Simulated assay, not measured.
Amino acid sequence: MSDFIRRFIFDDTDVRGECVSLGASYGHVLAKHPYPEPVGQLLGELLAAAALLAGTLKFDGLLVLQVRSVGAVPLLMVECSSKREVRGIARYDANQIAAGASLRELMPEGVLTVTVDPHEGQRYQGIVALNGTTLAECLTDYFATSEQLPTRFWLNADGRRACGFLLQQLPAQLIKDPDAREIDWQHLTTLADTLTAEELLGLDTQTLLHRLYHEEQVRLLEPRTLRFDCSCSRERSANALSSLGRDDAEALLEEQDGQVVIDCQFCNQRYEFDAADIAQLFAGGGSGAPSQTRH
């Protein structure tokens, strides 16, 4: 299994964790665009972070992480659904990107937005400035400033694998004393701070946890699979055209020499609509298959 997330629980304290490893799905994302190495690494780390966050939530819908800046990388955006389907994209200026560039160099004045969009219920959105030196630090800051459960992240990506490690302090059940809870939390996070990129990217979850916590009572749950999937479709593209209204859609058709082309930025899938398709759409015939009038 190359793409998975595994939860683990400390039986004697109120802390849980998640480990995520992305191989094939990360490869699918990188294959869609010729990302420079530093951009591909940031995108991989954000993909791992989205999978970790989605693993901590009980919801049916979509989690979106979006980072915007005024620098060489103006946009990173990844999504992870409650079905553990991931996709991601980055926008960048290759002329401004140097090998080994840091997060601050690539994304100055950056802002991270976390959006939870359930199929039912209220949409939630939180925003935090990118004040950390890594995406992991910025996500940790987000939890600290949004008054949520204390949560720490460790993230790495190398163009082949994207991996992440998360610890989250749970509400007091096993240990009620605040000082004792803080001591336990600091002990577990301090041990996790010893993780190297090579260990996170190269060790299996069981070996990694044994290296960190062989003196703790840790219960490792079964892995859950992750995969790349894009939610674009011809029907969604047709709905976007329909929302323009018939006059604007026909004007767009004329501007584009008789064929409206909608490209998915995530997977590069192309959807084409000619005059017959537009007429069918606004006659109530739906998006259907591409018309047969093309030569």
Rank of each mutant, 00 (worst) to 15 (best):
Y213V: 05
F8R: 11
A172K: 14
Y92F: 14
G100V: 14
A72T: 07
I89A: 02
A279Y: 08
G100N: 05
A49G: 11
A129N: 05
A99C: 12
E199R: 10
T194F: 01
V78S: 07
I5G: 08
M107S: 15
T140P: 05
V20Q: 01
G164M: 03
P178K: 13
V128K: 01
I97E: 10
G23N: 02
P34I: 15
R91A: 06
G159T: 05
A49K: 01
S102M: 13
S291P: 05
V86S: 00
P36T: 10
G110R: 13
Y213L: 00
A31R: 15
Y124M: 05
R16H: 15
E255T: 13
Y271M: 05
M77P: 06
E255M: 02
P108M: 03
L76E: 07
D3R: 05
V111M: 09
L53Q: 15
H28C: 14
D179P: 12
R160D: 15
N131F: 10
H210F: 14
Q122P: 11
G23S: 08
L203A: 06
L30R: 07
L46V: 10
L30K: 13
E147G: 13
E216I: 05
A172S: 11
G245A: 01
P223S: 02
P150E: 03
L52Y: 07
I127C: 14
T207N: 06
L203F: 13
A289T: 08
L221R: 11
H28I: 03
T151F: 06
F153V: 12
L174P: 02
F59G: 14
A49W: 00
G44C: 04
H214I: 02
Q269A: 04
R211D: 08
H214G: 03
V260P: 01
Q256V: 10
L241K: 06
T293H: 00
G164L: 10
L253N: 01
A240Y: 06
C230I: 06
C230N: 01
R224N: 06
E120T: 08
S243E: 13
M1G: 05
A157V: 09
D11Y: 08
D277G: 10
P178Q: 11
L47V: 00
A129S: 12
L62Q: 09
P74L: 12
P118S: 00
A99V: 10
G88S: 12
E45R: 07
R224G: 14
Y271S: 04
A24Q: 11
L30N: 08
R87G: 12
L22H: 06
R224D: 09
L42I: 10
G100T: 14
I127V: 15
H214V: 04
L220C: 14
S146K: 13
L203C: 04
S82E: 04
V67G: 13
Q148E: 02
L212K: 01
R161A: 09
Q206H: 15
E272V: 09
L53G: 11
F59N: 00
C19E: 03
R6T: 12
T133D: 12
L149D: 02
G202S: 00
F273D: 07
I262D: 00
